[in-house]
Nucleic acid binder design. Structure first.
Lengths: 142, 142
DNA sequence: TATTAAAGAATAACGATTTTCGAATACCCG
DNA sequence: CGGGTATTCGAAAATCGTTATTCTTTAATA
């Protein structure tokens, strides 16, 4: 990336706080697309006083300055991803895990849609649902 | 369709009630992908005593017997669609309307993904975001 | 038409997210 | 490097969509 988180925060008029760096670190170092609760829990050890509200407010800022994307995979809560590349997601309907799907040319599909509808498209989200390899092995597959 | 709503309800062990028929009628006669609140409001005139809880429970049943699909277009509430065909949706980020996108071969994309990941896919949802033709005319476009 | 299990309406409960507001602190300036 | 100040933090309460509970009504069958 061109700028690091500290520069981006300061450049957008936000203060650089340990909490913000910590929340971003969690997101940047996992591939598990955690929700707010999961981020909160994983920070309990190092930041015992941090509240869920702070996690939400921080995510809001990180999203605003383009450092995290918000996933709405049809669950009861949102998930967050520090990987800003345009990629789809697949959720296992058995265990709930959410994985990345990189081999999909979304731009091509988007161009087709833009030609078909008369919308001027600004973004898209593709979600796939199925059973992950692990759960298939578990024999839970019917 | 092969069976009508009355047969489907009864065949699945559900009673056929005026409320259920009414909720389905609303969904079947609109292309606006209403959420629960919108369905509730549009039934106020004819069913002044119906409660929101009934709308939710009815939608739940209609979804269970395969008569409506649930849309999660990244808003704060769910939308519902009586068109069960596999089609994508596009939401206008200006006015909030949700339109259908039929010209997209989702099955083909799904097959590609299934080959790439090792998931066994059971479904997918594609959502596009942009500015609808009306809002583009409004000059709100930047 | 009577029986009865299921459904409706009203209300309370629930969980994720947002807001409020006094206390704490990052950052600019000297 | 320390002070002043606007911003942020954190705890609690509020909000909002949705779900559960309770009690009353009703559809379906004989």
């Amino acid at each position: 990336m061109s700028k690091n988180i500290t520069e981006l925060l300061r450049g957008n008029g936000f203060k650089v706080t340990p909490q913000r760096l910590a929340v971003y670190e969690v997101l940047a170092n996992t591939k598990e697309h955690p929700n707010a609760e999961m981020i909160f829990s994983s920070l309990q050890a190092t930041y015992p006083t941090m509240s869920l509200a702070t996690v939400y407010k921080t995510i809001d800022i990180l999203h605003e300055i383009g450092l995290v994307q918000i996933l709405n995979a049809g669950e009861d809560s949102f998930r967050y991803d520090a990987d800003m590349s345009n990629h789809a997601h697949v959720r296992c309907v058995e265990c709930g895990r959410v994985d990345d799907v990189f081999d999909l040319d979304a731009a091509k599909v988007t161009r087709e849609i833009e030609a078909g509808t008369r919308y001027r498209l600004t973004g898209q989200q593709f979600y796939f649902y199925g059973v992950c390899p692990e759960c298939q092995k578990q024999g839970k597959a019917h």
